[in-house]
Computed example of a mutant assay.
Amino acid sequence: MTRKRRLSEDDQALWNQVARSTNRMHPASRKPAPELEVNNVKPEGPRSQPALASLPAFRLGQAARYDTSKGHDLASTLEQRLAAQPVRMDRKTFGKMKKGKLRPERKIDLHGMTLSTAHSALSRFIIAAHADGCRLALVVTGKGQGKGKFRDDDGPIPTPRGVLRNQVPHWLRLAPLGALVLQVTDAHISHGGSGAYYVYLSRRR
């Protein structure tokens, strides 16, 4: 049988000092303080948020001020580019030419030709006409088959209808033809309209 050992006063004082400097490993959980009533009025519970008014259906871009039915083709048309060109020839003569009052001195028809064949034929035609002192030549390209601005194909890049019609003005700006040509414009309806071009050449030196 073990006997309980009694601490001396000095040992008891030392133990009490050590006990006061320690913390409990598992402190007892504290209960929340009870809600107090002030003047017999219980505190209100959490307020509920007011219901938000339902928003009307919204479509992206519905407030835009442009017409989306025509697509987003930002490139100017061939007619617009030709009309924007400065007049490099006599304006009175230019007006007569646009009205179909000038008779072309030479004519070439590029119908049915490939691009490479048409380019070579056009170059020979313009150089020969200029060498002979011709001033107004008529280049027939055709308008292109089908309707619409672009051809119906499966390529990733839209191909404009009337490839020759689109290429001829470009070829006429490049060397060596660019130095011989003063003006390019759509022909009058009597000479083929938008399926042909008037090509006004510079004077031979």
Rank of each mutant, 00 (worst) to 15 (best):
V184F: 02
D132I: 07
G146L: 05
G148N: 06
P169H: 03
S120G: 12
R151Q: 15
A179R: 03
R103N: 14
T159V: 13
A179L: 06
A179Y: 00
T185W: 05
G148Q: 02
L164A: 05
T159W: 00
K143Q: 15
L102A: 10
R106T: 09
R124I: 11
W171I: 03
G144N: 09
G100R: 01
D132N: 09
L115V: 13
V163A: 11
A137M: 00
K147F: 15
D90L: 05
A121E: 13
P104Q: 10
R103V: 14
L102V: 14
D154I: 07
K107F: 15
G142N: 08
A179C: 02
K92C: 08
D152R: 02
V184T: 08
T141S: 08
K149R: 15
N166F: 09
K149L: 15
L122S: 05
S123H: 02
T114N: 07
H170M: 09
T93Y: 04
P104D: 12
G95C: 12
E105H: 04
K101I: 11
R91S: 13
R161C: 13
I157Q: 06
R106H: 04
R161E: 14
R103I: 15
D90P: 11
S120Y: 06
G155K: 08
L136V: 11
G155E: 14
D109W: 03
A179K: 04
F125Q: 00
P160D: 02
H130F: 08
T141L: 06
L138T: 02
P160Q: 01
P156Y: 04
Q183F: 02
T114R: 01
F94I: 06
P158F: 12
H130I: 04
P176Q: 01
G133C: 00
D132G: 09
R124W: 04
R165S: 13
C134A: 09
G144F: 08
P160H: 01
D152S: 11
H111I: 01
D109E: 04
G155M: 10
F94K: 02
I157G: 03
D132L: 07
P176H: 01
P160Y: 01
G162T: 14
S116D: 14
L110W: 01
A131Y: 08
V184N: 01
K99N: 11
S120D: 12
D90C: 08
L110K: 00
A175F: 08
V163D: 06
H111F: 03
H170G: 14
L180I: 07
T117I: 12
Q145N: 11
G133H: 06
R135V: 08
F125K: 02
F150I: 05
T141E: 10
L122I: 01
L164E: 07
Q145A: 14
L115A: 10
E105F: 04
G142L: 09
A137D: 05
R88M: 09
I157C: 04
G95Y: 11
G178W: 00
R88E: 15
C134G: 02
